[in-house]
């Protein structure tokens, strides 16, 4: 090392030689090949996702979510590995940087893994512990500014409910909600989202929604199990997408 320090005053070329001993210049071909591999896997994952939707609609075979998720995330992991190795040059770099990256990924997996273990299997030893999982997040306690605004303008009382129900009620109470206009919501649609998933949602863009089995593994059942109640919607909109 002391020789290197000494050469730093010498000719630029000599210094160059001494200093840049480990900077690898990645061949252009390698970079182009990396890009090609990334594009290939991107198209592949989109095609697999479309294929899954097609199989579900055509043959009425719903592939379990877990398979779907595993395939998509595996492809994303492969793409990430390729980016990190060749674009970010970890393959040619100081191994210490690779250690930093790998330990970060392990930390993330630790976070995710233990959260999922807790959420998925909490009730599998002592059944009663499932009750400690609160579904929450539906926003029942929220007071929404536009709801208050609509109530004030129209004088119609909109019950405090889930944001989705409030949004629907507010739309119905809105003077702009006229039959024939885009975004028209029928009065009978009110509160549909809570219990009845069968009909009356022709305006929603989530046309191809299918009954969700989710990746929930054991004990946990979301309140109000909707399984199978929306098959009809799934078939109506085959043409879309």
């Amino acid at each position: 090392m002391s020789e290197q320090a000494a050469t730093s005053h010498a000719e630029p070329h000599l210094e160059d030689h001494a200093e840049h001993h480990e900077h690898v210049i990645v061949p252009k071909m390698t970079l182009q090949l990396t890009l090609a591999v990334l594009v290939f896997f991107t198209v592949l994952t989109v095609l697999l996702s479309m294929g899954e939707a097609w199989i579900a609609n055509e043959f009425d075979i719903v592939i379990p979510q877990l398979v779907n998720v595993a395939i998509a995330l595996s492809i994303a992991s492969i793409k990430t590995t390729v980016v990190v190795m060749f674009f970010m040059q970890l393959k040619y770099d100081n191994p210490l940087n690779t250690m930093v990256f790998i330990f970060t990924v392990l930390t993330v997996l630790f976070f995710l893994g233990f959260t999922m273990l807790d959420l998925g299997f909490r009730g599998s030893i002592n059944r009663f512990e499932t009750d400690y999982i609160k579904n929450g997040g539906s926003g029942h306690q929220l007071s929404m500014p536009y709801v208050e605004d609509v109530m004030e303008r129209t004088g119609i009382q909109i019950p405090a409910d889930a944001p989705t129900a409030m949004a629907r009620a507010a739309r119905i109470a809105d003077p702009d909600n006229v039959k024939g206009k885009p975004g028209y919501v029928k009065v009978k649609d009110l509160h549909h989202d809570d219990h009845d998933h069968g009909h009356g949602h022709e305006h929603s863009d989530a046309g191809k929604s299918r009954p969700g089995h989710g990746i929930t593994i054991t004990a946990l059942k979301p309140e109000g199990d909707h399984d199978g109640s929306r098959d009809g919607d799934g078939h109506d909109d085959d043409g879309e997408h």
Binding site: N135, G137, S138, G139, L142, S143, M144, P145, Y146, A162, P163, T164, A165, A167, R168, A170, R171, I172, G183, V185, D189, D193, D194, H197, H201, H203, S204, D205, A206, S209, R230
Partner: peptide, 17 residues
């Protein structure tokens, strides 16, 4: 998200999440 949600045709009460 959350308090700003005003889409009237949601299927599921938890879509704001």
């Amino acid at each position: 998200p959350g308090v700003f949600f005003s889409y009237p045709n949601a299927h599921d009460p938890n879509e704001p999440l």
